[in-house]
């Protein structure tokens, strides 16, 4: 099985993110692999362990994104590819999908492409389905479990309404959710291998693509209005007394 895991690099969750002069700033907070995409790498590695083959981590992003790819290598991915190009600054999701699809073809196709559900930063959650559409491959979204059987793949799709079992022929595009299993920690050997790896950087012309014109663009960036939460602690002699006071407060808020 040839498996590709698509990953993005994002500022760490703990980062103090601010709008400064119309730009996003996260100070000196570290950039990390998008948490959902760690599940994508985990899902890909699980399938490799079952069926054999290779896992390639693929990212479209700036040079710094090599670090996120190294994390995927340290987890156990066999190869990593970065697509980076000065003309890619204002990429929207349709653009990202076109570039990813071209890179997937350039890699030589795949049996399965695994995505995360959503990114922490822009978080549109559109890229997986759009990549599937551009490739013309079936989309099996929000998989919590994956089972490959010969030329087909079956997933348990995790929806609010319940779990749905869906099946499609390979090659297919999948996105995964947390139920796939905790991402493995990079092993010592993995980290050593990743630190020595040279990650090829492909330009758009390398993958035979041209810069997609952005359709969705940002016109304004703002910090959210400051929330002032003055916490009122409810105390009392007994649970019943506390509950009584708390119930009155909640009812007075008129939120029921």
């Amino acid at each position: 099985m040839k498996i590709i895991a698509c990953i993005k690099q994002v500022p760490d969750s703990e980062a103090k993110v601010k709008a400064e002069g119309g730009q996003v700033s996260w100070g000196d907070a570290p950039l990390v692999i998008n948490p959902f995409d760690e599940y994508a790498v985990e899902g890909a590695l699980q399938q490799k362990e079952i069926s054999g083959g290779t896992v390639t981590a693929l990212c479209v992003g700036p040079e710094s994104a090599k670090e996120a790819l190294k994390h995927a290598l340290a987890m156990g991915a066999d190869e990593a590819v970065l697509v980076s190009d000065a003309t890619l600054n204002d990429l929207d999701t349709v653009g990202a999908a076109k570039v990813l699809a071209a890179a997937i073809q350039k890699i030589g196709g795949a049996d399965m492409v695994v995505f995360g559900r959503q990114t922490l930063d822009n978080g549109a959650g559109l890229t997986p389905a759009q990549t599937a559409r551009v490739l013309g491959w079936p989309m099996l979204g929000l998989a919590g479990q994956i089972k490959v059987d010969g030329g087909s793949v079956q997933v348990e799709r995790v929806l609010e309404e319940g779990r749905q079992s869906m099946k499609a022929n390979l090659p297919a595009v999948l996105s995964v959710v947390q139920s796939i299993g905790e991402p493995r920690y990079p092993s010592f050997m993995g980290i050593r291998k990743a630190s020595k790896a040279t990650i090829p950087v492909w330009s758009l012309s390398d993958i035979g693509a041209s810069a997609p014109a952005p359709i969705v663009t940002r016109t304004e960036l703002m910090n959210p209005p400051a929330q002032e939460t003055a916490t009122e602690m409810i105390t009392g002699e007994t649970p019943a007394e506390i509950a009584e006071k708390l119930a009155d407060k909640i009812i007075a808020e008129k939120v029921l």
């Binding site: 969750s13 103090k16 359709i215 940002r218 304004e220 960036l221 910090n223 959210p224």
Partner: peptide, 18 residues
């Protein structure tokens, strides 16, 4: 012109679709 939260609600952006 749409308003939407990004970066886990740490920022708000306005976007347009051409």
């Amino acid at each position: 012109i749409s308003t939407r939260p990004i970066y886990e609600g740490k920022l708000i952006e306005k976007t347009v679709c051409s």
